[in-house]
C-alpha cells in the first residue's frame, strides 16, 4: 500500500509503531468505500458476466435460463448487432466532437475572457447547468416536439428544399446526434471551464512576445495547456453517449433506423427477456469503451501535463 507513512522514513524509535497504526486507521477509513464498490459494482459485474454465459432452459418458458459457459453468446450478439455498435460509437463520437466545438469557445469565454466580471461568470455557469433543473426526459421530448413535422422550422427547411418535402427531422441520425450533443454539453463545458479558468494568461503574453500570432498561440499554448479539461470533458461526454438509449429510442428523437447498442440492450432485457444476449452486449460495450478510453488517455498523455 502506498501510504505516505511508509515512505516518510523519519528517524527515531517511534517510527516503528506509528506507520503501522496509521495504515490501520487508513484501512478503516477506506472500508465503507471498498464495501460500497464490492456491493454495488463488483457483485453486479460478476453477475452480469455469469448471466452473459447462460443458456436457455430446455423446454422452459421465455426468459428461463440456466448457468452454463456459452461463450458463443458473444459471437451471436456481435453477428446480430454490429451495426448498432457502429452507430453507437459513431453517434457518440460525432456528439463528442460537436459538444467540444460548441463548449470550448463558451468555456473559454466564461473562464478567461469574463475573468474581470465574476458576476457574468457566475451567471453564465448557472445558465450552463440550468437545463439540469428540468428532467432530461422532458427536455428531450421537448426537442422532439420542436423538431416535429408541423413546426415552422421544419416547414421553412422544407420550403427551402434543405430537407425533401416528404422528409422528417425526428427519427434521423441528425436528431439523435443533436439530442446527444445537447444533453451532454454541460458535461463538456464544466471540465473545460475548470481548466481554462486556471489558465495563466501570462503564457499567452509570452507566446505573443515570441512572435506567435493569436491563432498560433491558441494551438501551441492554450490548447495543450487545456488538454486535461479536453480529455475529461470528452470522456464525460463520450462514455455516457455511447451507452445512451433515450435519445436514439423511437419514443424520443430516434427511430428503428437509429437504434444504438443501448436500445438493443434495453429491448433484450425488458422486451425479449433474452438476458444472456443483453448481458453479453453490456459486457462488450463496457470492454470496447474501456479499450478506446485507455488508448485515448494513453495517446493524449495527460499525466505529462502539470
Amino acid at each position: 500500500m502506498a501510504f505516505a507513512a511508509f515512505g516518510s522514513g523519519g528517524p527515531g524509535a517511534a517510527v516503528d509503531q506509528a506507520p503501522r497504526r496509521r495504515s490501520w486507521v487508513a484501512l478503516v477509513l477506506l472500508l465503507p468505500g471498498l464495501a460500497y464498490l464490492a456491493l454495488f459494482f463488483l457483485t453486479p459485474f460478476v453477475s452480469l458476466i455469469l448471466t452473459s454465459l447462460q443458456t436457455p432452459v430446455e423446454f422452459g418458458d421465455v426468459g428461463q435460463f440456466q448457468q452454463a459457459f456459452k461463450i458463443e453468446n458473444y459471437a451471436l450478439v456481435v453477428q446480430q448487432y454490429w451495426p448498432h455498435f457502429l452507430r453507437a460509437f459513431g453517434y457518440a463520437l460525432a456528439a463528442t466532437f460537436f459538444a467540444l466545438v460548441i463548449s470550448y469557445p463558451l468555456a473559454y469565454f466564461i473562464g478567461v475572457k469574463a475573468r474581470p466580471w465574476p458576476l457574468i461568470q457566475a451567471l453564465m455557469l448557472t445558465l450552463v447547468i440550468a437545463p439540469f433543473f428540468i428532467s432530461f426526459l422532458l427536455r428531450t421530448l421537448a426537442w422532439k416536439a420542436l423538431m416535429s413535422d408541423e413546426t415552422p422550422v421544419v416547414q421553412a427547411l422544407k420550403a427551402l428544399s434543405i430537407i425533401p418535402s416528404d422528409g422528417h427531422l425526428t427519427g434521423t441520425a441528425f436528431s439523435v446526434i443533436f439530442g446527444l450533443t445537447y444533453n451532454f454539453i454541460p458535461f463538456m463545458t464544466l471540465p473545460l471551464y475548470t481548466t481554462l479558468e486556471r489558465l495563466d494568461t501570462r503564457y499567452l503574453e509570452a507566446g505573443s512576445d515570441l512572435y506567435a500570432a493569436p491563432a498560433t498561440t491558441f494551438w501551441r499554448v492554450t490548447v495543450p495547456l487545456s488538454m486535461p479539461g479536453v480529455v475529461s470533458g470528452t470522456l464525460l461526454t463520450f462514455i455516457p453517449a455511447a451507452g445512451d438509449y433515450i435519445n436514439a429510442s423511437a419514443s424520443f428523437l430516434g427511430s428503428a433506423q437509429t437504434q444504438m447498442v443501448g436500445n438493443v440492450i434495453e429491448t433484450n432485457f425488458l422486451g425479449l427477456l433474452d438476458y444472456p444476449a443483453a448481458s453479453a452486449l453490456s459486457v462488450l460495450l463496457m470492454g470496447i469503451i474501456l479499450l478506446l478510453v485507455g488508448l485515448y488517455v494513453k495517446r493524449s498523455g495527460t499525466e505529462d501535463l502539470l
Binding site: 503564457y203 503574453e205 507566446g207 505573443s208 512576445d209 515570441l210 493569436p214 495543450p224 495547456l225 502539470l306
Partner: peptide, 20 residues
Amino acid sequence: VKSFKRPVNTVFQSYALFPH
C-alpha cells in the same frame, strides 16, 4: 504594431516558461 510583430523580447518576472 501588435506585440507578436515587434522586434522585442521580454524576460518575464514570472519567467512564463511553457510548462508543456
